[in-house]
Design a protein around this nucleic acid. Sequence first.
DNA 1: CCCGCATCTGACAACGTTGTCCAGGCCCTA
DNA 2: TAGGGCCTGGACAACGTTGTCAGATGCGGG
Lengths: 345, 345
Amino acid sequence: MAETARRTDNRYGNRPTMKDVAARAGVGLKTVSRVVNGEPGVTPDTERRVQEAIDALGFRRNDSARVLRKGRTASIGLVLEDLSDPFYGPLSRAVEEVARAHGALLINGSSAEDPDREQELVLALCARRVDGLVVIPAGDDHRYLEPEIKAGVATVFVDRPAGQIDADVVLSDNFGGARDGVAHLIAHGHRRIGFIGDMPRIHTAAERLRGYRTAMEAAGIPVEEAWTSLGVTDPQRVRRAAEAMLSGPSPVTAIFTGNNRVTVTVVRVLAEHSRPVALVGFDDIELADLLQPGVTVVAQDSAQLGRTAADRLFHRLDGTLALPERVELPTRLITRGSGELPPAS
Amino acid sequence: MAETARRTDNRYGNRPTMKDVAARAGVGLKTVSRVVNGEPGVTPDTERRVQEAIDALGFRRNDSARVLRKGRTASIGLVLEDLSDPFYGPLSRAVEEVARAHGALLINGSSAEDPDREQELVLALCARRVDGLVVIPAGDDHRYLEPEIKAGVATVFVDRPAGQIDADVVLSDNFGGARDGVAHLIAHGHRRIGFIGDMPRIHTAAERLRGYRTAMEAAGIPVEEAWTSLGVTDPQRVRRAAEAMLSGPSPVTAIFTGNNRVTVTVVRVLAEHSRPVALVGFDDIELADLLQPGVTVVAQDSAQLGRTAADRLFHRLDGTLALPERVELPTRLITRGSGELPPAS
DNA sequence: CCCGCATCTGACAACGTTGTCCAGGCCCTA
DNA sequence: TAGGGCCTGGACAACGTTGTCAGATGCGGG
C-alpha cells in the first residue's frame, strides 16, 4: 500500500524533480538546488543525503526550467549550407570547440542554400533562445534578424556577408584569392582561361568571379562571353559547362573553378579529356596532391573561419565588443602541378 | 511621460512576452497564445490586432517556457566522434533531414573518441530534455543512460553497439565487408596481406579485423604477427605501420585498411613506394576513382546509417516500436584497380 | 543561564508559456 | 421578448528551477 503510493509519486515516464529529491532526502527544495549547483552553505551530512536521493531517483536537472529562470541557454546556433560538404564539417567542428570552451552546446542546421529555410532555422533557434548565432547566409536580406539582435542575440556571419543589416562578418579573401589564382595561370602562359562557379547570387561566387575578371583585365586579356559559367554546382551542369569551354573553335587552355565541388567535377572531366588543360581550384580538396597532376588550389582554412567567428561571438557575449566589424582571412595558393601546365599549342 | 513609461515596460535587452503583447493589443494573455499557436476561437479582428502587436514588439515565443509546460522539446541530440570527418558529415546531415521532417531540431556534439566526453555530452543533452538521442559511442559502458532511457529518452546507437545495455543499434556489416574485401585480395593471388586499423577497443575496428582473420583462415593462410597493426589513426602512426609491413625480409604484397583516414595515409605511402602494392580500404573516399590506380574500397553508406537510425528513433517516439533491435546494413565492394593488382613477384 | 551571532535551511515568488474552466455577449428560436 | 445554446475572451494554476529573505539551530561569550 505504502509501496504503491510511493510509486505513484513519480509517475511512470515522468522524470523526478527537485521536489521529489527533496521529499526523499527529507530536506527543502532549495537545499537540493544548492547541492545540484554546488553552492556553499550545505553541511556535508545533508549533502550526502541529497546526493543519495539524486542517485537513487536518477534525477537530472531540467535545463528548460533553468533557462527560463536564468535567461541564458548556454547554447549557440550555427546555420550553414550543408553539413555533409567537406568545407563545412571542419568549420562546424571548430565552432563547436570554441563553444565547448565556453561551456556552450552547438545546435546546427543546414539551410540547403534556401533563404526561406535559413530564416526558418534562424528563427527556430531564436525561439530556443540561443545565446548567439553563427550564420552562413543563404539569403541576402537579414532584416528579419534585427529584433533578435536588438534583443541581445549575438550574431556573426561567416563566409558571406549579411544582407541589409550591419553585423559582424568573417570572410575569406575571395576576391584576392581568385585574382591570384588566375594570375598564376596567366603567369604560366595562359590567356584563354575559363571560370566555372556557383550561382551569381552567392557572394563568394560573385567575388571570385570579380577576382577572375580583375586578373584578366590586369593582364590585358578581354574576357569572352563563353569563358564564364555560373550556376548550381551539381555535377551535370558543371560537366556541361566544362565540356562547352573545352570544345568549339577556340577552346580554353585553363580553367579556374569556383569551389571544391566544381573542382572535383572538373577534375573528372579533365581526366577524360585528351589535351592537358591547366586547372586551379578555389578550396583545397583531400587527395588533391596525389592526383596526376596534383591539383593546384587557392586554399581557405574553413576551421579558422569557424574559430574566428565563434571567438568573436563569445567576445560579443562577454560584452567586450561594440561595433560590428568585418574580418577578412587570407587565402593561400598551393601549387601542385595542374596550375603549372603550359597552354597546349 | 507616457512615452517613458511605455519604454520602461519592455526593459532594454529583455524580450517582449505574451503579456506585453496582450497589453498592447488590449486582449487577454490566452488570446495571444491562441493567435501565436494558430488555435481556433479568435475573431479575425482580434487576431489582426494581436498580430500587429506581435510585429510591432518583435515578439518571439520563448520555447523554453513552452517546453517546460508541454514536456517535449522537439529536438534530438546526435553525439558522434568528429563532425569534420567526411564519414560523419553525411550521417549528421541525414539525421538532420529526418528530424526536420518531424519538426525537430538537431543538436550535435563531437566526443573526439573520448568516453568521458561522450558521457558529458549525452548527459548535457538529456538535461536539455532532448526527445531522443542518436549516439555513435566512444565508450563501452552505457549504463549511465539507463535512467534516461527509462524516463523516455528514445535512444539509438549507430555505427557501434551500446555497451552493457540493451538498446537499438544500427550497424554496417563490418565483419562481412572486411572479410569480402580481404577475400577479394586473396582472389587476386595475394597471401601476404597486411591489416591496418583503428584502436582495438573500437567495435568497428575489432569487427573488421575479425573479418580479415576469417578471410585469411578460410583461405588457409596463417596470419603473421607483423601483418596486423591497430592503433590511433593519425598519419604518423599509420605511416610507420605501413612502412614496417612493406619492408623487412618478407613484406606484404597487399594491404587492407580499416577506415577512410587510414586509407588516405596508406595511399600516400604507396605513392612513394617503388613496388606496386595492392590496396583495399574500408569506407569510400572522394576522388578515389581518379587516383592511379583507382582505390578499391568496401563502401558503407553513412547517410543511410544516419537515416535508418533517425527513422527508428522517431518510430520509437511515436510509440510504434517495442523491443530494441539490431539492424545491420550491407556494404558494397567497389573495384577500381588498386585491389586487382597482382602480387609483385 | 541567557543573549547574540553565525551558519544552515526552507518557504515563497517569479521566469513565460499552455490547459482548464468560467463569464459574458450574441444570436436564434419559441 | 425571454430563454437557451454557442462562441469568444480572460483569470488562474501549473510546469521545474533559482533568487530572496526570513526562520531555525547551535555555539560561544558575558
